[in-house]
Design a protein around this nucleic acid. Structure first.
Length: 267
DNA sequence: AGCGATGTTCGCCG
DNA sequence: TCGGCGAACATCGC
């Protein structure tokens, strides 16, 4: 699940549980996700420090500590943030268990172990180092800057949207949703998007990502909160397009399966 | 039992 | 040089 809206939900969950609290200790249960830091050093860096703030850039979640360093979390395809009461066992697939000095704990889970856990001395330095483009909801981006950021006119718009070095935070699910809502075919070239379409793409990106956040994806019951006209809950073979009733089709692009409606989304 | 999966990265090819 | 593709990574669920 973890694309921008999901990670934003995780951030809020993390925030509610951790903000202002001091970490008593941190258990690393699987060190395969660690990048550039040893289990011992991470545990040491976290323990005794207060969580001063949380933030998000694209699909990355940062928890900044009172010493300026940040715990960096990336969730791969299957990560989650699970708040727990003290004394409760961490759930299955927990890779990092953070215990605060009062009552709360947080489990970071990763079922398929494709995520990453890192420690950044400097958040913006880390973002630069990862070559990440601006966050998809970056308030300083306008429609023109957004299209500019998508880069080469020759690339397929879906691939461009999913390229984290261009715009950060959009993955397979939400690129499909955005293009569906904007009426743009996934393989349309960036260069073929006129000014009007570009404006629509930009606005739709905001609408879709913000609505998904507002619906609390991927928390319990989010499906009922999403608009019925979304493609998201119809990503299966034989599904009907919620807008025209036609068949939802799939194509392969960028190594991923794109779901789309060939009559609502013209090439 | 095999295949595909919400992500990222790398090597290959045109 | 760029973009697209397939594989690899690790693991699980259908």
């Amino acid at each position: 699940m973890p694309e921008l809206p999901d990670v934003e939900t995780f951030r809020r969950r993390f925030d509610a549980q951790a903000l202002g609290r001091t970490i008593a200790n941190a258990h690393i249960l699987d060190d395969r996700l660690l990048e550039g830091v040893t289990s011992r050093r991470l545990s040491q860096a976290l323990s005794g420090h207060r969580v001063a703030s949380t933030s998000r850039h694209g699909k990355y979640l940062f928890a900044e500590l009172d010493n300026g360093a940040s715990l960096v979390l990336h969730f791969g395809m299957t990560g989650d943030i699970v708040p727990l009461e003290r004394g409760k066992d961490a759930p299955r697939y927990t890779v990092l268990h953070i215990i605060f000095d009062d009552s709360a704990t947080i489990a970071v889970t990763s079922q398929r172990k494709l995520g990453r856990i890192a420690l950044a001395k400097d958040k913006s330095q880390f973002i630069k180092g990862q070559n990440l483009g601006p966050d998809a909801l970056d308030s300083t981006l306008d429609a023109e800057a957004f299209r500019e950021a998508l880069g080469s006119p020759r690339s397929a718009v879906k691939s461009a949207l999913m390229d984290q070095t261009k715009i950060s935070g959009i993955g397979n699910i939400y690129s499909d949703e955005i293009l569906y809502q904007a009426g743009i075919h996934p393989k349309m070239r960036v260069g073929e998007i006129g000014e009007k379409k570009a404006a629509r793409l930009f606005e739709t990106t905001h609408q879709v990502l913000e609505k998904a956040i507002e619906s609390g994806v991927p928390s319990e019951g989010f499906e009922e909160k999403l608009p019925k006209t979304w493609l998201l809950l119809h990503r299966e073979k034989g599904a009907k397009c919620p807008r025209c009733g036609g068949p939802v089709r799939t194509i392969k692009t960028g190594g991923r399966t794109a779901y789309f409606c060939s009559s609502c989304q013209q090439a």
